[in-house]
């Protein structure tokens, strides 16, 4: 696959003979990266589509071509629809928790309070922990009998709220979403903080002369200048939520009763637990298409926004 692409470069570059000297340098410089990327990413996407056209366990070489039947089955598969629904719930919940909380954390780091170094250091810690470690840790936080959350609720007199957070269908997905927020809000905090640092001090000084309140300063200076990074963060958050896997796999395995199933966990289950590699491939290709469409939508929306601004 990538070899033909390389050849294309050669052909096109050979047209203007004068630049021939550069052509080989260009190929030489790009080839190593393009080769690895081509084999593991580009080739794999095509192969996933190819596999999705077969009835195949993955353990034997017996592949039966069945056309689009896997996709037809997918459309009728209730668990798949549950997983899409959960993925979009995660997308929306992430956007409306991670980004605002990340922004509040970033703004706090610029407020005139003492002990800033401690706040800053601790706030960022969750992002450095591996998702697997976070998952295991939060299993114990949400545990029904002695779990940390229930203990805290007991101490502040809210015993009535105590429950087996990730053992119950009604609470499991929210418990997981809260954990995802705990993990990623610090990341957006860092992005927002880096942008706020870059805002020229003169802008605020001018606002002070005009007698602007703190809220006006935020609304008229900070927020507009943060807009580009908020859009970037939104893209990262949406794409990240669509391919989310690790935490759910460790914490709930998609349960109880598929209530926390995501496209990625369902794909993994079908492929490597039930050995339906053909069917699993159709789920992963559907994930690709969904991520692709959503990305196009966001980019288009961003273009519109930029168009309106200028």
């Amino acid at each position: 696959m990538e070899r033909t692409d390389d050849l294309k470069i050669v052909k096109v570059k050979n047209v203007p003979k004068r630049k021939n000297k550069d052509t080989w340098a260009i190929i030489g410089f790009i080839a190593p990266a393009f080769l690895i990327y081509g084999v593991y990413v580009i080739y794999s996407i095509f192969m996933t589509f190819y596999y999705s056209l077969f009835d195949w366990t993955g353990i034997d070489s017996n592949m039966v071509f069945i056309g689009l039947e896997n996709y037809i089955a997918l459309f009728r598969d209730g668990v798949f629809w549950t997983s899409i629904q959960n993925n979009f719930l995660l997308v929306i919940a992430s956007l409306f928790t991670q980004l605002p909380i990340g922004l509040i954390m970033a703004l706090l780091l610029f407020s005139p309070i003492k002990g800033m170094r401690l706040f800053r250091s601790v706030y960022f810690m969750p992002f450095l922990m591996s998702t697997v470690a976070i998952g295991i840790l939060f299993i114990f936080i949400y545990e029904g009998n002695y779990g940390l959350l229930n203990s805290v609720l007991g101490v502040i007199g809210l015993e009535s709220l105590q429950t087996a957070w990730i053992g119950k269908e009604s609470t499991a997905i929210w418990a997981v979403i809260a954990t995802v927020c705990w993990q990623f809000a610090p990341f957006y905090m860092i992005l927002f903080r880096a942008t706020i640092v870059g805002i020229p001090e003169e802008l605020y000084e001018a606002a002070d002369i005009d007698g602007a309140t703190g809220w006006q300063r935020f609304k008229n200076i900070t927020l507009p200048l943060l807009m580009p990074i908020i859009v970037t963060s939104a893209i990262l958050s949406v794409i990240g939520s669509l391919k989310y896997f690790d935490l759910i796999y460790v914490m709930t395995g998609g349960g109880p009763n598929n209530s926390t199933e995501l496209m990625a966990t369902y794909m993994y289950k079908q492929t490597f637990t039930n050995f339906n590699m053909g069917y699993g491939s159709s789920i992963s290709f559907a994930m690709f298409i969904i991520a692709f469409i959503v990305t196009l939508f966001i980019l288009f929306g961003d273009k519109q926004r930029k168009g309106n601004d200028s």
Binding site: S44, T48, L242, K243, Y268, M277
Partner: peptide, 21 residues
């Protein structure tokens, strides 16, 4: 652009082919 698009590709879309490869 081909390289940049890689940032939005879900790892799971490549998992089975990379496994067989």
């Amino acid at each position: 652009i081909i390289f940049m698009v890689g940032m939005m590709i879900p790892i799971h879309t490549t998992l089975v082919p990379i496994f067989t490869l």
